[in-house]
Design a binder for these strands. Structure first.
Length: 238
DNA sequence: GCGACAG
DNA sequence: ATCTTGTCGC
């Protein structure tokens, strides 16, 4: 069997796991399709960087997703799309993707232009099974993805330097080996770092460079800030 | 067994 | 994620 055969987005969405054991099996099956040998788009490429995020209303069982496209060079918003759906999975640490991806995919599909890079709110390779939300979304869509998280999850790190741009490796032990699964990146001086990891078809250096460029003023990338604001607005309205 | 745990 | 006011500071 060809372990790099293309993954069918429709098939994966149709066969969404019903419980935790199935979900972990999906991660173990799809993990091999992640491409770690591409650097990803250069820092000032011509195209769009798209931020995706979701907001929940557990009482109504509703999830709202937003995809906001920024010009990679100017960081101006050039396109926005949203989607609303039913919550397809409970929140389980390590299985976040199963809760967010179906609605995020719907929102992404409504964008006028194919994203050059997708920035996810969460992790990619920094994951207990090396297949976080950003990796999963990348494999399903084929798009270059990175993950930028607000919390270190279960990973170890030493505080990066105090200045903007300072980094420190995010470490995890698996099978008796310590691996740099991502980086703590200080996007603003004196402010808690964000936690960057590669998703699909990107490299860690580029992922950090993009994240820093996308966060000229605030701790979080403008992509994440814009997507977060939009999906909250949608949830509040509908 | 207990605690920790992306969003 | 979400529940939530005022408040300290640039």
């Amino acid at each position: 069997m060809d372990n790099t055969s293309p993954v069918s987005l429709d098939d994966e969405l149709r066969n969404w796991p019903a419980d935790e054991a199935e979900a972990r099996a999906v991660q173990d099956r799809l993990r091999r399709h992640v491409r770690l040998d591409e650097p990803g788009p250069p820092p000032d490429f011509e195209g769009t960087v798209v931020g995706v995020d979701v907001a929940y209303d557990d009482a109504r069982d509703v999830v709202a997703a937003a995809a906001v496209a920024l010009d990679a060079r100017t960081l101006e918003i050039v396109d926005e799309a949203t989607a609303v759906g039913r919550i397809s999975f409970p929140y389980v640490p390590g299985l976040l993707a199963f809760r967010e991806i179906p609605t995020v995919v719907d929102a992404l599909a409504k964008l006028a232009q194919t994203p050059g890079l997708v920035v996810c709110d969460g992790y990619g390779r920094a994951h207990p099974r090396r297949f976080g939300l950003a990796s999963h979304l990348g494999v399903l869509t084929g798009l270059p993805t990175i993950g930028v998280a607000k919390n270190p999850f279960t990973f170890r790190y030493d505080a990066p330097g105090d200045g903007r741009g300072a980094t420190a490796p995010l470490l995890d032990d698996l099978d008796g080996t310590t691996e740099e699964v991502g980086r703590a990146l200080r996007t603003q001086q004196g402010v808690k770092p964000v936690f960057v990891s590669v998703g699909h078809r990107t490299g860690l250096d580029g992922a950090c460079a993009h994240t820093l460029r996308l966060a000229p003023t605030y701790r979080l990338p403008e992509t994440t800030r814009a997507a977060d604001a939009l999906c909250r607005r949608v949830l509040a309205a509908g």
